[in-house]
């Protein structure tokens, strides 16, 4: 898939200085026991999960649409990208609506979170780039890992993950022929 190339570029360009990736205000959320953090600046709102409309033929990680105040927003399920089970949604689940710059285009997207935790300051905490080995995940999907209170907080590399979804969507068109 064409996504592999930009993905590795992105990863190498961000690796040298993982410290710069620690956000002064980060929104943390949990999925399958792992804690993820994204820049709180990019978060537009956090909403309870509305009915999700499935998009047949779309890539599994991005196969839903929701209505957020009259806007139709695609929902990304990071659990697919990180090889986790897609447990049924419960009351703790939220959709984090973020606005992010993707190839120079402002893109609004909803991230499914099993549980939203808190907004924390990650600056100054020990941080290291994603290890190339010993992870269950594609290393370029992880921008960095922060140690906080004896826990690992994963900073996902959203541009890499989202552009990999984009490549996947075109490949898996609905079985119509």
């Amino acid at each position: 898939m064409s996504s592999a190339q930009p993905a590795s570029d992105q990863a190498t360009s961000t690796l040298p200085d993982p410290a710069s990736m620690a956000f002064a205000s980060a929104l943390t959320f949990a999925m399958e026991g792992e804690i993820f953090a994204i820049d709180a600046q990019s978060v537009r709102e956090i909403v309870e999960v509305p009915p999700i409309t499935a998009v047949p033929g779309a890539t599994a990680a991005l196969d839903g649409l929701v209505n957020v105040r009259g806007r139709i927003v695609p929902v990304a399920d990071l659990r697919v990208a990180f090889g986790m089970d897609r447990a049924p949604l419960d009351d703790d689940c939220r959709i984090i609506v973020i606005e992010t710059d993707l190839d120079g285009e402002a893109t609004t997207i909803g991230l499914l979170a099993e549980k939203v935790l808190d907004v924390a300051n990650l600056e100054g905490l020990p941080i290291e780039p994603a290890p190339a080995l010993g992870m269950r995940w594609r290393s370029d999907f992880v921008a960095a890992i922060v140690h906080r209170d004896a826990q690992f907080v994963i900073l996902p590399s959203l541009p890499v993950i989202l552009s990999s979804f984009q490549g996947g969507a075109a490949a898996a068109s609905p079985n119509l022929a």
């Binding site: 993707l102 893109t107 609004t108 984009q166 068109s173």
Partner: peptide, 9 residues
Amino acid sequence: SRFHSGLGV
């Protein structure tokens, strides 16, 4: 969105 516009259907 750009993620789904390629589906065609």
